[in-house]
């Protein structure tokens, strides 16, 4: 079960590792093992995540960071091209700025 963790401020490397863990939970370890996930990885082209998987990933971010991070609100300002072109590094930066 997802829970809100009120941890201290994370640095970009810790946020990256946390997001990588979320991606693994959503798409499965067997797929992640074949990927070289980096800050430059995009959700569509590199991670091959579909829209419902990005929903699950977003929910994990919301559950972990709670109200500190308005992740859905941030995504809602993007058009469909921006959304599918979204890179992991952009999310890391967004979370780091919001903390």
């Amino acid at each position: 079960m997802d829970t809100i963790v009120t941890a201290g401020k994370l640095n970009s490397n810790e946020i990256f590792n946390l997001l990588k863990q979320f991606i693994t939970e959503v798409i499965g370890e067997e797929f992640v093992e074949e990927m070289d996930i980096s800050m430059d990885s995009s959700f569509n082209k590199d991670l091959e995540m579909d829209s419902i998987e990005i929903v699950a990933f977003s929910e994990k971010i919301k559950a972990h960071f709670g109200d500190k991070i308005d992740f859905t609100g941030w995504l809602s300002n993007m058009d469909i091209d921006e959304l599918i072109g979204l890179k992991l590094g952009m999310i890391v930066n967004f979370i780091e700025e919001c903390q």
Binding site: S51, I52, I54, V55, S58, T72, G73, L75, S76, M78, L83
Partner: peptide
């Protein structure tokens, strides 16, 4: 399709004033 058709763009607009429920 699935609920993501609303989740990212449409539901947040509606949620400014309403309780929004999406389901698969």
């Amino acid at each position: 399709s699935n609920l993501s058709i609303y989740y990212f763009r449409i539901a947040p607009i509606l949620a400014r004033h309403f309780h929004v429920v999406m389901y698969d």
